[in-house]
Structure formats: structure tokens, C-alpha cells
Simulated scan of single mutants.
Amino acid sequence: MPYNKNKQQSFQAAQQGTNEAMDIYENIVKEDADYGSQLKHLSEEVNEAYQQINNALENASDTQRQRLEQYQQDLQRIVNEVNQSEKQ
């Protein structure tokens, strides 16, 4: 049973990390004076979420694996959008 509990806990950590990164991204104000520190915080959260996803993928069920791969895509979309807005 501990294996299943660990699997669920690692999945939930990845889910929570992704949600936190998405929340931060959605609340960044480009014109804000502390935009740079907001981006740094976002970067840290995205990196942490990626680590949590990678940990969860090690023992994920097929259903969890699909969701975790979606989380990776969501995070990559955030990174791409931030990079694109920085170029403008």
C-alpha cells in the first residue's frame, strides 16, 4: 500500500506545483515595477513543477501519466508565451 500512497502523493505534488505556476503566470503584470522579480518567481515555480512532474512520472499509472504529460505541455506553453512576450 505505501507504493500506491507514494504514487498518489507524487502526482498531487506535481498537480499542485503546476497549478501554482499557472496561477503566478496568470497574475503577472508586465507593467508592474516588480515584473522582473515576478518572472523570477514564475521561473522558480515552473522549474519546481517540472521536477515534481518528473518525479511523479517515475511511478505514475497510465491515467496519471497522461495528465502529467498535459501538465508538462501547459508549463511549456507558459515558458513559450513568456519568451515570446520578452522578444516583443
Rank of each mutant, 00 (worst) to 15 (best):
Q9H: 05
N47I: 02
D74M: 11
K87S: 03
N4R: 11
K40P: 08
S37N: 14
H41N: 12
E26N: 04
K5R: 04
A13N: 07
E20S: 10
N6V: 02
E48M: 10
N59M: 11
V82H: 06
E81M: 14
Q64E: 13
N4I: 12
M22H: 01
V82C: 08
I78T: 13
Q73G: 11
A60Q: 07
Q9N: 10
K30M: 12
T18E: 11
E20V: 02
Q84T: 09
Q70G: 05
Q12F: 01
N6T: 11
S37Q: 10
N80H: 11
N47M: 09
Q8M: 12
V29Y: 02
N54A: 09
Y25F: 14
Q70Y: 10
M1H: 12
Q16Y: 06
E31V: 02
A56C: 05
S10F: 09
I24K: 02
Q84Y: 09
N4C: 06
G17M: 04
V79H: 13
A56E: 07
R65M: 05
N27V: 03
D34W: 08
E26H: 07
N83R: 15
Q15W: 02
Q16H: 10
D74F: 00
G36Q: 14
E86A: 15
R65N: 08
A60W: 11
V79P: 02
A56R: 00
Q12I: 15
N83H: 13
E31C: 04
E58W: 03
N54E: 10
E48K: 14
S43E: 14
H41F: 03
Q66V: 05
Q72P: 00
A56F: 00
T18K: 10
I24A: 07
